[in-house]
Amino acid sequence: MGRTVPTITRQLNETEAMLQTFRRTLRRGDQALLDGLLASAHRHLAAISASGALLPFEAALLAMLLEQARRIAALEEEIRIFQEEVVRLRDGKG
């Protein structure tokens, strides 16, 4: 086959393997957070690959940020619903 460049999945896996010393030095709780961040980048492999970047980890970082933004938006929405509920209860409409 004509493929010479490794796939984006393989490149990310290799980068993660390179980060193992970094990960090991983190506190146990932080290690789990890092694992979550790295896993979130895997949801956007197609977009990272499509970016055609020489250093795909830059696009992977953007994908992690995107997942964080999505999580924040979801939490904001939950807070809004809770706030509305609080206001409703406070006004005695519950």
């Binding site: 004509g2 493929r3 010479t4 460049v5 796939t7 895997h42 949801r43 956007h44 492999l45 197609a46 690959s49 499509a50 055609g52 970047a53 020489l54």
Partner: peptide, 14 residues
């Protein structure tokens, strides 16, 4: 750069 840009397979959306 040409290889990275064009030597790719089909699109896979996770």
């Amino acid at each position: 750069v040409s290889l990275i840009r064009y030597d790719r397979g089909g699109m896979v959306y996770q």
